[in-house]
């Protein structure tokens, strides 16, 4: 089993696992980063969303072999102190209920705001419609994204 080298939350990482093991299980079981959640295993629910080279990816359907040399960011690496504009807005709007899907919702929202500083309702629908929340926090998610965009713009567009 060849070792896979990549950058994880800003630090170099090497793992030695079977090549087809999804990134999700490498993060959770091999590396102990449990903020990224297992929800469906088929890229259907969005709970496992992480960033790979800045793009939102479903880690449950991403083999570790495809990550070699890439940069991965998980919920734990978003900010050291929950001060990413999306996290600030999530706290302000008290978004989570059970909270299980929220890592994926937040990572998807951060990726949306990285490319769209003033997202419309349609932009939010398009970006978030494949992130399932069974508690029904969709209203709060929408409001928090709008608020996060404001915070981000006030900070000068920095991510």
């Amino acid at each position: 089993m060849p070792a896979v080298r990549f950058t994880l939350n800003g630090k170099p990482q090497t793992v030695d696992v079977v090549p087809n093991m999804p990134l999700l299980w490498v993060l959770r079981d091999t590396l102990g980063l449990t903020g990224t959640k297992f929800g469906c295993g088929m890229a259907l629910c969005g709970a496992c969303t992480v960033h790979v080279n800045g793009q939102p990816m479903r880690s449950c359907a991403t083999p570790i072999s495809s990550i070699a040399g890439k940069t991965v960011t998980t919920i734990e690496g978003l900010s050291p102190d929950s001060t990413n504009p999306v996290q600030l807005a999530w706290i302000e709007h008290d978004v989570p209920q059970c909270g299980y899907c929220q890592s994926g919702q937040i990572m998807t929202a951060v990726a949306l705001l990285a490319k769209t500083s003033r997202p419309t309702d349609a932009d939010i629908d398009e970006a978030l419609r494949n992130n399932i929340c069974r508690c029904g926090t969709y209203d709060e998610i929408r409001r928090a994204i709008v608020r996060a965009a404001e915070i981000q713009r006030a900070q000068g567009g920095a991510k």
């Binding site: 980063l33 734990e76 999530w90 937040i106």
Partner: peptide, 12 residues
């Protein structure tokens, strides 16, 4: 429980 549920630290 909100702060722990926006940064991955809440333990399920």
């Amino acid at each position: 429980d909100t702060p722990a549920k926006v940064n991955g630290s809440a333990t399920f």
